[in-house]
Write a protein that binds this DNA or RNA. Structure first.
Length: 116
DNA sequence: AGTATGACGGTTA
DNA sequence: CTAACCGCCATAC
């Protein structure tokens, strides 16, 4: 894939400022999310495992700051439900790319990406 | 170095 | 099913 415009920023919990500059950790996370195939998803925890650092919480914080440069809708909670603020839009985007959705959640048994 | 914060996860009630 | 609680960990200040 083409490199994402490094214009975005990472950093977690930015209080008091718009966006800080990307951190190595944020790039790791965005890199993994960027590789999720259309119609497939990963849980926040899955992303943390694939990067080898952090937890679902830290992954979520990174995406909250610049998930805009990656297919953010492909990262959902362990329950299969997209994060609250993005619920409707995420479900719409996922359904559009052929991801199995049931009610307000993704059918993880069918849509979970194996990371390969 | 210590405290606060957050697009999470798992357990317990 | 919902709600509360605690553990987790990178980052900001």
């Amino acid at each position: 894939m083409t490199p994402r415009p490094a214009s975005a920023s990472a950093g977690l919990a930015v209080r008091g400022g718009p966006r800080s500059q990307p951190t190595a950790y944020a790039r790791l996370v965005l890199d993994v999310v960027d590789r999720i195939p259309p119609g497939k998803v990963l849980t926040y925890g899955d992303v943390a495992e694939l990067t080898g650092r952090g937890t679902g919480r830290t992954v979520g914080t990174v995406l909250s700051q610049h998930g805009h440069e990656v297919p953010w809708q492909r990262v959902v909670q362990a329950s299969g439900r997209p994060a609250e603020p993005l619920l409707q839009q995420a479900l719409r985007l996922l359904a559009a790319e052929g991801c199995p959705v049931e009610g307000e959640r993704v059918v993880l048994t069918r849509a979970r990406w194996d990371g390969t």
